[in-house]
Amino acid sequence: MCLGIPGQIVAITDASRGLATVDVAGVKREISVAFVRNADEAVEQLIGAWVLVHVGFAMSRIDEDEAAETLKILSELGEVAQETEAMRASGRA
């Protein structure tokens, strides 16, 4: 694959070169944000954003709504599974 890990942009270190500091669980590293900055916004807008980091580059901005949506589907699956289990149990009873 390509090892990628979520991190949060906490500072811009060199706006002209598109370099920023990313924080991954308390470990910091300078990375390039060239691939995730919008041409029409100041690079400082990225501070606070969550990105996927690969070999020193932010490759994607994490879509927090999508993440929540995935977890919601998983939770609902859990409820369905519980209901199925309950139905099976009551069917046996």
């Binding site: 090892l3 890990i5 991954v24 669980a25 308390g26 470990v27 590293r29 980091v53």
Partner: peptide, 12 residues
Amino acid sequence: REEVRGFCEILG
């Protein structure tokens, strides 16, 4: 430790 996990995740 959380930071060690982060460290390890970054470097595989």
